[in-house]
Amino acid sequence: MRIIIAIIFCCFSVFGFPQNDKTFEQANALYNEGKYAEAIDKYESILKSEVHSAELYYNLGNANYKLNNVAPSIYYFEKALQLNPNDKDIENNLSFAQQMTIDAIDKVPEVGFSRIINNVVNTFKVDTWAKIAIGGVIIFVLLFLMYHFSYATSQKRIAFIISVLSLLIACFSMAMAFQKESLNKKDNPAIVFSQESKVKAEANQKSEEVFRLHEGTKVQVLDTYEDWNKIELSDNSTGWIPSKDIKLLK
C-alpha cells in the first residue's frame, strides 16, 4: 500500500511494508507528518535488524530526497532498483534525485556485436536463463525418446528436428547464463558520498589529480588497494579514489 504525498512537479510516496512491521508503520507516519529525519532514523533501524526490501529502500530514498541529501537518496533508490528492477516509480524518483548531482558525465554507447550480445544477455536474469536451459534439455530428452521408439517416419522426423532445436536452445541459454553471471561479477557499482573527492592517477595522496567527483555520482569499482578504490566512470575515465569517499551498492 502506498501513502501518496503530493509535491510540486512530481509525486513521491512511501510503500507499505509487506511484513506490516510496526516500526515501518511508525516511520511512514513520521514521513507523512514531514518529519523526514526522524523517519530516516526509523527506517535505518529496520536495516540494522537485517531486514531489506525494495519498499524500505524506496522510502529511505524519498525521505532523503525531501531533505536534499543527494548521495543517500540516489544510493537508496539504486538499492531499491536492484531488488525491483522493473518498478517505474523507483526509476522515476531515481531520475529526479540524479538531477541534483553536479557531475555531468557522458556515457560511451556500446556499438556493434558487443551491444547486441549484451542486450540479449540482459534480457533475463541468470536463474531464468538456467531454467530455460533445463527446460530445453528436458524437451530434448523426451523428444529423443519419442524419436527412438516411434515407428512413423513423419513423427520421427518431427521429433528429431524439434529435439535438435531444443538442444540448441538449451546450449544457447546455458552460454547466456554463464555470460550474465560474468557480467554480474564485473558489475560493482558505488555512489560517491563525499561532497567533493579528488580522484588520483595512482593510489596515494601525492599522486597527480586526474579529475574531481561530487556527491551522488555513480561509479564502477574495478580494484581495491589498501584504503583506495580504482574506479571507472561511464565515459571510461579511470582513477583512484579514497575508499571512505564512496559507498558500494553491493
Results as ranks from 00 to 15, higher is better:
109 P>D: 09
39 A>N: 12
223 D>Y: 05
92 N>A: 10
210 V>D: 02
46 I>Y: 08
16 G>Y: 05
62 N>R: 01
22 K>E: 15
196 E>C: 13
188 N>T: 13
68 N>R: 08
185 K>A: 11
190 A>Y: 10
192 V>H: 02
166 S>I: 10
30 L>I: 09
137 V>S: 07
29 A>P: 00
47 L>G: 05
217 T>V: 13
226 E>F: 08
28 N>G: 07
75 Y>C: 01
106 D>Q: 12
243 S>E: 11
170 A>F: 03
166 S>H: 08
133 A>G: 10
212 R>W: 00
112 G>Q: 06
160 F>S: 15
191 I>K: 04
22 K>R: 13
125 K>I: 11
139 I>A: 13
244 K>Y: 08
210 V>F: 02
201 A>M: 09
173 S>L: 09
51 V>N: 01
91 E>V: 08
222 L>S: 06
23 T>G: 12
66 K>Q: 15
188 N>M: 08
80 A>F: 04
139 I>N: 11
78 E>V: 00
220 Q>P: 00
250 K>I: 03
80 A>C: 03
192 V>T: 09
152 A>S: 12
172 F>T: 13
239 G>W: 04
13 S>G: 01
155 Q>N: 12
220 Q>L: 11
199 V>R: 06
85 P>W: 03
13 S>K: 04
181 E>D: 15
153 T>V: 15
81 L>K: 12
140 F>L: 10
226 E>T: 09
53 S>G: 07
152 A>L: 11
226 E>L: 08
84 N>W: 05
237 S>C: 05
95 S>T: 13
184 N>L: 13
108 V>F: 04
47 L>W: 06
167 L>P: 04
20 N>G: 09
43 Y>N: 10
199 V>D: 05
160 F>W: 11
72 P>S: 07
75 Y>V: 02
174 M>R: 00
57 Y>V: 05
55 E>A: 15
89 D>F: 04
63 A>H: 07
154 S>A: 11
90 I>G: 01
208 E>G: 00
55 E>P: 08
45 S>G: 01
106 D>H: 07
186 K>C: 05
213 L>G: 06
220 Q>M: 10
226 E>S: 13
201 A>S: 15
105 I>Y: 02
29 A>D: 12
223 D>N: 15
230 K>F: 02
185 K>M: 13
247 K>G: 00
13 S>C: 08
87 D>I: 03
57 Y>P: 05
65 Y>W: 09
71 A>P: 01
238 T>C: 06
168 L>M: 11
92 N>G: 05
21 D>L: 14
72 P>V: 00
120 V>D: 00
25 E>L: 13
97 A>R: 04
54 A>S: 15
167 L>D: 03
17 F>S: 11
164 V>G: 00
197 S>N: 06
215 E>S: 11
16 G>C: 12
105 I>T: 07
